[in-house]
Design a protein around this nucleic acid. Structure first.
Lengths: 218, 218
DNA sequence: TTTCCTATACGACATTTGACGTATTTGCAA
DNA sequence: TTGCAAATACGTCAAATGTCGTATAGGAAA
């Protein structure tokens, strides 16, 4: 018995959606649950039904593009696999898509069989990739230069003391231990952390540490 | 008319060389120019004849291993494509091979057709990669931290389900949300996390996520 | 076949965390 | 000098987390 693969297609071009649907129509175990015309449309629809295995995502879309949408989807529903399916294969898009958490990156001209195998591979814990894309990822790995630069970071200002606390927090220490290390009362540590959360607009340790790392605060 | 692909196989195990030769024997346009038993053997032979299209390179070999050999080959003969063909798929080897300039990375258990297509793709300016390898390169790209601080990672074995849960955990989701996403009871999520903690020998989310990232489990 | 592991699930309990309000001291800048 | 931000600190409460025990079903391994 084969498991049905619940699939979603996101593309602002209805002709291309049709084309993808036709490519997948050969395979009985692929079921298109729904389609969306841009990222925000996808988010709306998926909030009602996140029982989805894989999303085939275009990049260039109005309102909310595929990379932004991927970031949100992977954050909220990490179990859903996202495969970028696009005509663009420039380094920026590839790298940003990977950073956003994409599980694969294929070009739209892909053969039906290759697309299908890519979906299967991805669901089996691999990653789907065009050979040309694969080469670009190798190059990116060799030149980690481009990895850091750019990105307009919001200017988040934490006090030196708050950074101290955050640093400790990032090591997985609890309030008591942090207090001991910094010669503070646990109550103070809690207050610092409360203030940090407010400034970073997060609600728990993990998010705080992640956001801090992303903004090079620690 | 098809162009003949001049191929070299490098492996210290003659049985495996034979196996690879047999896999490629189905394809008329593949011509095995010669084989070598280790990196230095390869260098000797290739200095007499570098009219070669592609080298299938084992990693674990005496005298001069596949990664060192790749580095030298790519420096001296950049036009020759090198595809790693090995049983090892640990991060170190993958990353080092890529750094050394490998154009592809396949596992030895590869299907004949996949191997052949990998060679073709590579010669056409792409990169050959197993889906599982592809995923590892993506993870390496997302976590450029681990590129430096390798060292023999302890072998931690988590079940696929546990990795699912850990992935969700790493996004900062709470038990309830993880349960919803994975269609589980929160109690089960808690139990999974409990088991994860035991295996990773940690005692909270943050430590678990950090250790998991360090070991490229997520 | 039996055994072991995995995935699933529930309950209970103590601890930790996150959110809120409040308050005192200190040092720097307006 | 005044005022304000930062650092310090306490208390309370609800929610989330970490730890323990237990249990069942299914599948893989021995």
């Amino acid at each position: 018995m084969q498991k049905i693969i619940k699939t979603v297609i996101v593309d602002d071009n209805t002709f291309l959606i049709k084309a993808i649907q036709e490519k997948l129509s050969f395979f009985d175990d692929i079921q298109i649950k729904f389609t969306a015309l841009d990222g925000s449309d996808l988010l709306t629809k998926i909030s009602n039904n996140h029982n989805i295995d894989v999303i085939l995502m275009d990049i260039d879309m109005p309102i909310l593009n595929g990379i932004e949408a991927t970031e949100i989807i992977k954050k909220k529903y990490p179990h859903i696999k996202v495969i970028m399916l696009t005509v663009f294969d420039n380094d920026e898009n590839i790298f940003n898509a990977i950073k956003a958490g994409a599980d694969g990156y294929l070009l739209k001209e892909v053969e039906p069989k290759t697309l299908y195998e890519g979906i299967i591979d991805t669901l089996n814990g691999g990653a789907a990739m065009n050979p040309s894309i694969a080469l670009k990822t190798l190059k990116l790995l060799r030149n980690p230069i481009d990895l850091d630069n750019k990105k307009e970071e919001e200017i988040i200002k934490l006090s030196a003391r708050e950074i101290d606390v955050l640093e400790q927090l990032s090591k997985g220490l609890n309030y008591i231990n942090i207090a001991e290390n910094l010669f503070l009362s646990p109550a103070t540590v809690r207050k610092h952390i409360e203030n940090i959360y407010t400034k970073l607009q997060v609600h728990n340790k993990l998010e705080a540490v992640q956001k801090a790392k992303k903004n090079n605060l620690i």
